[in-house]
Amino acid sequence: MSTAEITTGAATPPPAPGGNRPGGGPFGKGTPLRRITVAAAYLAVVLLAWQLYVTLADVPSYLLPDPLSVGDALWRLASSGELWPHLGYTVRNIAVGLGAGIVIGSLLGWVIASFRTVRLILAPYVVILQAAPKIALAPLLVLWFGLGLGSQLALIVMLAFFPMMIAMMLGLGEVTDDQRALGRVLNLGPARFFRLVQLPTALPALFAGARIAVIDAMTGAFLAEYISAQQGLGFLMVQGRSTYDTPQLIAAVVLTVVVGLTGFALVSLVERRALPWRR
């Protein structure tokens, strides 16, 4: 029934077999071919407008380079091989920090949701910590954890754990009294009840949290690199800025967006696989 819903209004004749999911992607409804075409056309229009503006208004390259020179900078970074260690470094940091943030956030959320005492002691401070601007805290983290990887990962984890913690708390709250009573009638112990009822109930919320956490982890990674690192996409930005190589700066920003979108898409993909019952 879900396929019928989304193929309506699709002009392209051969409807994709099966693989079509409702609400897929940010580019609305339609067959994959149509969606890709629309997305590409949209991108082309934006790039063209950018190019036209730069050319017609005669904007100097150090203020805003045209798309072609950004592409050129991208190509230069990629073909010289300079890009890959930086990209790898950032992606690895995001992955590690996000992984740790997901584990820590989920655990913390579970503890806070499950134990009243912990909630009373911990919850206010966690929220206060989260309300504090991270940019202001970043230099402090550098003082605490040094200039290297430590402070960078700390910042990423600090940003990524929060949405996961909130998601777990909200998700566990979705368990109904009836489900709890059912668990008791079936004599499920706490561990089994968690595995069979609580965790699956919280899973949709956890995925929603993970989507936010991915983006937050990315922000954390760039912030950290911007402040202290000698490597990474954030470092490429700093380098581009300090050498007035604006095309490189923009190229690094474009790569950032690509990394972020990829992370977001990966979470959505896993979510679709993991929650077939929500389709």
Partner: peptide, 14 residues
């Protein structure tokens, strides 16, 4: 003990 609640209380992911 078999118990039936006013709401079905099924596990939606199963």
């Amino acid at each position: 003990i078999g118990f039936v609640f006013q709401e079905p209380a099924l596990l939606p992911w199963r």
